[in-house]
């Protein structure tokens, strides 16, 4: 059973990215504001890719897909 708290982590990530984005945009740093979006997406992908890998390996093992 994989940890379910990743859902809450991703929600918190979205909140933090949104706050940082509006903050940097207000400060006139549009390029850094865009960078926060990219970094947020990268962190989210790093969190879920292992889960997808686990899912694929298990399905392969159960249905003998080789």
């Amino acid at each position: 059973m994989v940890d379910v708290s990743v859902i809450f982590f991703l929600t918190g990530l979205a909140i933090a990215v949104t706050i940082l984005h509006s903050f940097l945009k207000q400060a006139g740093r549009d390029e850094y504001a865009y960078l926060t979006l990219v970094v947020g997406l990268a962190i989210g992908l790093l969190k879920i890719i292992p889960v997808i890998h686990t899912l694929f390996t298990q399905v392969k093992a159960v249905f003998n897909l080789y």
């Binding site: 991703l10 929600t11 979205a14 990215v17 949104t18 984005h21 947020g40 889960v51 899912l55």
Partner: peptide
């Protein structure tokens, strides 16, 4: 959580949560 995230600046994370929930249910 997904409905909340899609209101934010980074809606792609909502899809990630959807993928994650689907994967967890499948694994379960």
């Amino acid at each position: 959580m997904i409905v909340f995230i899609q209101e934010s600046r980074i809606p792609g994370v909502g899809i990630m949560v959807s993928v994650f929930a689907g994967a967890i249910i499948f694994l379960y």
